[in-house]
């Protein structure tokens, strides 16, 4: 039997119906048409479906739709403001930090969360923070450089 869920996605109130065992990534993608969140494995191993749930990073394939009740969800669709990319997004473009781009939404959401907590991460900190986000194209090199550069951009903008 479908369950009614009231939640917030990217600061907008949202209601949806889902079955008790529907994952949040399926609700986001197939019910709400928020297809920016990607599904690469359904087992929490690849990070392509990374979202922010009540301020914490989560794999939306490991969260049930019903668990969104009363919570606040942030997805890739909410990262850029109209006309302005987030520093991580711009930096990924500037550093050729994506090839096929399927992992990119998850990387952006995860890297933004890192920089909100740590304005000046070391290379090692970035590598461990993103260890849950698989990328098969880039070998990570340019992603790591892009995140470090974005951190610097944000620090300079703040000072």
């Amino acid at each position: 039997m479908a369950i009614h869920v009231t939640t917030s996605i990217n600061a907008e109130p949202v209601e949806f119906l889902c079955e008790a065992d529907d994952t949040l990534v399926h609700v986001l993608r197939d019910t709400l048409n928020l297809t920016g969140t990607k599904e690469g494995c359904s087992t929490g191993d690849c990070g392509a479906c990374t979202i922010v749930l009540d301020g914490r990073l989560a794999c939306s394939c490991l969260v049930l739709g019903v668990e969104a009740e009363g919570k606040s969800i942030e997805t890739i669709e909410g990262v850029a403001t109209p006309g302005a990319l987030h520093a991580v997004q711009q930096s990924l473009l500037d550093h050729a930090g994506l090839q096929c781009g399927i992992c990119t939404p998850g990387i952006v959401v995860a890297a933004r969360a890192l920089l909100e907590r740590n304005a000046d991460p070391s290379e090692e900190e970035v590598r461990y923070w993103l260890a849950g986000n698989l990328c098969r194209c880039t070998g990570y090199d340019k992603i790591i450089r892009a995140v470090l550069a974005a951190a610097q951009d944000l620090r300079e903008a703040a000072s």
Binding site: G36, I76, E77, L85, L92, T104
Partner: peptide, 19 residues
């Protein structure tokens, strides 16, 4: 140069097979 399809891909707007 910045890739021409870059913005769609960093914002989640690009449509892949399952989208």
């Amino acid at each position: 140069s910045v890739r021409p399809d870059g913005i769609e891909k960093v914002t989640g707007q690009a449509n892949y097979g399952a989208d």
